[in-house]
Amino acid sequence: MDIHAVSSQIDLDIQQVDSFEALEEFRLRYLGRKGILAELTSVIPSLSKEERAVFGQQVNALKNKLLSLVEDKQKSFSVSPEKRRRTSSDLGMPGLAQELGHLHPLTQITDEICAIFSRMGFTIVEGPEIETEYNNFTGLNIPLEHPSREAFDTFYLKEKTEGGKQKTEKLLLRSHTSPVQVRVMKKHKPPLAIVVPGRVYRPDAVDASHSFMFHQIEGFMVGKDIKFSDLKGILAMFAKAVFGEEIKMRFRPHFFPFTEPSAEVDISCIICKGQGCSVCGRKGWLEILGSGMIHPNVFKQVGIDTKQYTGFAFGMGVERIAMLKYGINDIRLFFENDLRFLRQF
């Protein structure tokens, strides 16, 4: 019998072993009293002295290999498969499964909000974070001299100075998601129903409630018969979907350059249910978004006929909503990425 052939056969056979029964069979075949190893050993006395030494060593090596293979396999089936399948072990033990990762809470809130508007028929659109001054301001009826255009309210990009070449338009990091309104309305004809999630930037010093980078969701609708009452209806559905059927909502007059009439929207405090607590500053109301009817000047900028079309727009801070919904008290936690934080969501 060729000892090398036996060795490679062993390698093949051991791979087929997938149960205790098969392992026992394997062990008996090779290591049993009438097994192959015994057969090999029985040949030894018939060999010459020189042959005996070499062959004996080879048989011994084979035996060691077999023993270690059997031991390894045995370890891998520490419990009898029969028993494992039917009676199971201690069910008080934790179940065995791969641990899931976690989506960032801001992603979860953004997805939830976008899904709500999606179900109402809105299309989700995204836009670039580097914007032109026109899309971020002028196109939105924010005049050249508006304070929000100042360098301490908007990050501007350093301009390339190329040998006195004429400068192109100033570029900036969008300070809100509203420039996507301008982009969409310039490209597409009404009727439009759009939501825009995205990152925005403002040079605010970082503290528990301010961040120079944050997230917004913008929404707008343009059509022949879009009214303020529709804005109220859409946002009421949104608030109920996010914060529950019980939630109350109120619209307060406010000022935004790109809407007129404009409204700030409050929901009844989700902590104290409107009774007044420290979260709502004893007011019973929490401001969650800004909204209004799209200003005719914006329509003029994008070339939409104000005689035919009207529209509403709204925008909200994702961090604010996530903080309210989850009870998070420090905006910096969102960007620290501490696993102990992320795993809670």
Binding site: P191, A193, G223, F228, D230, P253
Partner: peptide, 22 residues
């Protein structure tokens, strides 16, 4: 907007627009 403010935003009714699905 002045008319809406004095009338009261709260008194403006709630309606739902028709949306063409996209």
């Amino acid at each position: 907007e002045e008319v809406a403010r004095i009338f009261g935003y709260a008194r403006i009714p709630v309606s739902l627009p028709s949306i063409r699905p996209d």
